[in-house]
Nucleic acid binder design. Structure first.
Lengths: 157, 157
DNA sequence: CAATCGCTGGACACTATGTACAGCGAAATA
DNA sequence: TATTTCGCTGTACATAGTGTCCAGCGATTG
């Protein structure tokens, strides 16, 4: 378990320049191609690397507004709420958290006005007692993982 | 602006099976290779597809605990707080939200005990007045984009 | 000391990529 | 209606990368 320094460099390199292949990566890192290939296979097998899917920007799709909604759920309605929210495309993410039947979900919308529609659709569901929404104004740190990868790689001495 | 139905199918296919190349994708979709290539170039140029970087699972790196912290910031300290939190690897994401100098950040930690250390490190900074943390217990909907892509593609006449 | 493991460097057949170009049909424009 | 533009098709070719295998070697482990 865990990753070493070379694993970290591989991940960082692929994060910076995803288009380069295994061969080019091995050249940049100064190791044999087989090594990079084996490391990548192992990282994928260990679940460290989930995949290389396209990273899609909701804003470019026409959904520039992001919000986080905290939902309070009626006792015993958790399963229903989950199943309902899975069916709402604007719900990008849903977590259950500590607290009194609370959930936290990430929403996107076409505009602030459209956000009202989305929230109504979310909150309109029966099992949801109350919702409080925080609209995102700025995103100083977009979702990132590299600093954590570097820390994990450094600790692996 | 926006994406059409073929764009949507390309994105979905690449999300499902990122390892296939342009040629194989064109075969699966029943279009010419040049078409897929041109579409992908355009999607990247439009910013719809940000890239194809590796998706790393923090849990597999040894950080299985996720939490969301709402931070209340001292007036005028926003910039300092941002700069500080950028330097904390366990801060995966940071947003400023509507409300009284509020920020929302996503944290990970090695354990619940370790989360205390992370929170202390975050909250220990001077510009932060108060913090309330919600620990994630379940993640019924992991970060996803495909349903939104499909909706955007379908709405495109 | 022997065995194991990961890395190296080379080899092979196969496949994909980048790029170009002519043809064609649909949609926009004159 | 005639013309231009645009995106898709199908093809071609040189270059490069991939998947896979293998022998050798040094370091770590038993």
């Amino acid at each position: 378990m865990g990753i070493d320094e070379l694993d970290g460099r591989i991940i960082k390199l692929l994060a910076d320049e995803p288009r380069i292949g295994v061969l080019e990566a091995s050249r940049r890192l100064g190791v044999a191609r087989g090594t990079v290939q084996a490391r990548l296979d192992r990282l994928r097998a260990n679940g460290v690397i989930r995949g290389f899917g396209p990273q899609v920007d909701p804003a470019a799709l026409g959904y520039p507004v992001t919000a986080f909604a905290t939902l309070e759920i009626k006792q015993g309605q958790g399963t229903d709420v989950r199943a309902y929210l899975v069916g709402v495309p604007e719900v990008l993410e849903l977590h259950t958290t500590t607290g009194h039947g609370d959930m936290l979900c990430r929403l996107v919308a076409r505009s602030n006005a459209d956000l009202q529609r989305v929230i109504d659709r979310v909150v309109g569901f029966d099992g949801i007692v109350r919702a409080s929404t925080a609209i995102v104004m700025e995103n100083p740190v977009p979702l990132r993982i590299i600093p954590l990868v570097e820390q994990a790689a450094a600790e692996e001495t």
